[in-house]
Design a protein around this nucleic acid. Structure first.
Length: 356
DNA sequence: TCTGGGGTCCTAGGACCC
DNA sequence: TCTGGGGTCCTAGGACCC
C-alpha cells in the first residue's frame, strides 16, 4: 500500500497580512487587528503582525494590554468581509491544485487553514515536500499571501507539523520522527489538549507526550471519560485515522455575543439587548434555511463569572417573536444581582434533511 | 482599565417512560 | 425490608479550537 500523505496549510499572520496587502504603507510596522480598532475600548487582539509579536503582543490579549506593550502599533478594526474574500481566494487556489494527476481534496478549517489530501484514484504522488512547496508558491502567486505547510502521514501530524515550519516554511512529521520531535514536549503541545486537560493529566503523573503514549488507556478512560480518555491516548501516539473530508460544512448553530463598553445594570435593558441579539442571529438562521430547535443564553457578569441557560423549543421555528420571547424567558432563570458585561444568544438549528 | 466572538463536542445528572 | 434496569431527552456546564 502506498504511503498516505496529508498536508496542512496555514496562512501566516493571516488577518494582519490581509490588512497590510491593502495598506502597503503598513508593511514592516507593528500591526494589531482587533475589536473596533480602538485600543482604549474593551476588546482583544485577533491577530498581531510579527513586528508586533516581537513586543509581546499576541492573539487573545486585551487591546489595552497590547497598547501598553506596543504603544506605537497601528491598531485596526476587524473586517470580516475582507477576510472572507481573501479566504475564498486561498481555498479556491487550493481546490484548483492537482496531486498525483488528480484534483486534491480540500477540507477547510477556518478562514486561514485547510487540510489538503490526495484525490480518489491518485497515481504516483511524488515527494510530499515538493507538493508542499508547490502549494506555497501557488497561494503566494494567486493571493500575495504567505503560508506554511505541514506534511504528515495523517491529519493530526500534519496539523502539528505546520507550527514547526512557520513562517513561510514546510515541516514533515510522521510516525518515524513523532517521538523524536514531540516526545519530550508537554501534553498541551497536542491539538486538542489545553491547559485544563494538561493539568488533569499531570495529576495522573502524565506530563509529556511520551508519557501519555505509554500510559494505560483503561486508566485514562476511567479517570477522564470513555470517549476522551482513549482519544487523548491516541493523541499521545500521534494516531489519527480520520479522512480529509471535503463535504461542505453544515453549521449546527449560530450565535451572537456582545461585550458592553459599559456594564449593564438595568435588567429591562438587558432584556432589550437579548431581543436585539436574537434578531441578529435570526438573520444567519434565515440564510441557512433551517428553523431553530434550541435557544441558549450566555451571560458574563462582572466580576468574571459566566452562566449559561438554554431550552428546547416546543417546536422548531424561525418566528422572530417566539424566539425573542424564549430567549428573554431564560433571564428568569438567572440571578439578576450583578452588572452584566457580556451577553450572548445562541440558536441551535434542526439537523439538516437527510442526504444534505 | 483584564480576559472577543465565532464555533464544536463531551459529560453529568435529573426527569421521564416502559 | 427494600426500593430494577434500560433507554431517551433535556439542561447546565466544561473544554477546546481558530
Amino acid at each position: 500500500m502506498t504511503q498516505q500523505w496529508v498536508l496542512h496549510v496555514d496562512l501566516d499572520q493571516f488577518i494582519a497580512a490581509v490588512e497590510v496587502l491593502r495598506r502597503p504603507e503598513l508593511a514592516g510596522l507593528p500591526v494589531v487587528v482587533g475589536g473596533r480598532g480602538d485600543p482604549t475600548e474593551r476588546g482583544v487582539v485577533a491577530t498581531a503582525s510579527y513586528e508586533a509579536r516581537a513586543f509581546g503582543v499576541g492573539s487573545g490579549m486585551p487591546l489595552r494590554i497590547a497598547a501598553r506593550k506596543c504603544p506605537d502599533a497601528v491598531f485596526l478594526p476587524v473586517d470580516h468581509e475582507a477576510y472572507n474574500v481573501a479566504s475564498d481566494e486561498v481555498m479556491a487556489t487550493l481546490r484548483g491544485l492537482e496531486w498525483g494527476g488528480v484534483p486534491v481534496v480540500v477540507q477547510v478549517l477556518g478562514w486561514d487553514e485547510a487540510f489538503v489530501g490526495a484525490g480518489e484514484g491518485h497515481g504516483d504522488l511524488g515527494d510530499p515536500m515538493e507538493q508542499a512547496e508547490r502549494i506555497r508558491a501557488a497561494v503566494l502567486d494567486a493571493t500575495a499571501l504567505h503560508c506554511s505547510v505541514g506534511v504528515g502521514d495523517n491529519k493530526l501530524r500534519a496539523k502539528i507539523a505546520t507550527d514547526f515550519g512557520k513562517p513561510r516554511g514546510v515541516w514533515r512529521l510522521t510516525a518515524e520522527n513523532w517521538f523524536e520531535v514531540m516526545g519530550d514536549r508537554p501534553t498541551t503541545a497536542l491539538w486538542g489538549i489545553g491547559s485544563k486537560t494538561g493539568k488533569k493529566l499531570a495529576a495522573l503523573g502524565i506530563d509529556t507526550v511520551t508519557q501519555l503514549a505509554e500510559s494505560d488507556a483503561r486508566i485514562l478512560a476511567a479517570e477522564i471519560g470513555p470517549t476522551m480518555g482513549p482519544w487523548y491516548h491516541r493523541l499521545g501516539r500521534g494516531v489519527d485515522t480520520s479522512a480529509v473530508d471535503a463535504s461542505p460544512w453544515v453549521p449546527r448553530a449560530h450565535g451572537r455575543e456582545e461585550t458592553y463598553q459599559q456594564d449593564l445594570e438595568d435588567w429591562a435593558q438587558v432584556a432589550e439587548e437579548v431581543r436585539t441579539l436574537t434578531r441578529r442571529v435570526l438573520a444567519d438562521i434565515d440564510r441557512e434555511g433551517r428553523p431553530a430547535a434550541r435557544v441558549g443564553l450566555k451571560i458574563r457578569f462582572k466580576p468574571f463569572f459566566t452562566v449559561s441557560r438554554s431550552l428546547t423549543l416546543p417546536a422548531p421555528t424561525n418566528d422572530p417573536t417566539t424566539l425573542a420571547d424564549a430567549a428573554v424567558s431564560l433571564l428568569d432563570r438567572v440571578e439578576q444581582d450583578r452588572p452584566v458585561r457580556l451577553l450572548g444568544v445562541r440558536l441551535e438549528m434542526t439537523p439538516p434533511p437527510e442526504g444534505y
